[in-house]
Amino acid sequence: MEFVYPILIAIVVGLIIAFVLTSGLRAELKSVHQATQANIYIKQGSFKLSNEQDLYICTKVDKTAKPKPQQQQQR
């Protein structure tokens, strides 16, 4: 019985680690991707902010009761 839990944990964690590492190997084969951004084409020094406002709107406080310990409830 003392081996059951360590074996189960080892199988699950082992599968996850093997999946992550082999996914990395698969990714090595793919070098073609569609470009979705143009960050490298932003003219140096051209980005300028003309308005920067952080407006506080409101505050909301949620209060939830803590569960009472069982002993207190029984008394």
Binding site: A38, Y41, I42, K43, S46, F47, K48, L49, S50, N51, E52, Q53, D54, L55, Y56, I57, C58, T59, K60, V61, D62, K63, T64, A65, K66
Partner: peptide, 24 residues
């Protein structure tokens, strides 16, 4: 002792400005 509190402060954040792109 009795309650858990969660305070959420809401903000509207505004940003305006410009930038330029070259040779896309």
């Amino acid at each position: 002792a009795d309650y858990n509190y969660k305070e959420t402060k809401y903000y509207t954040v505004l940003r305006s400005g410009s930038l330029a792109f070259e040779n896309i």
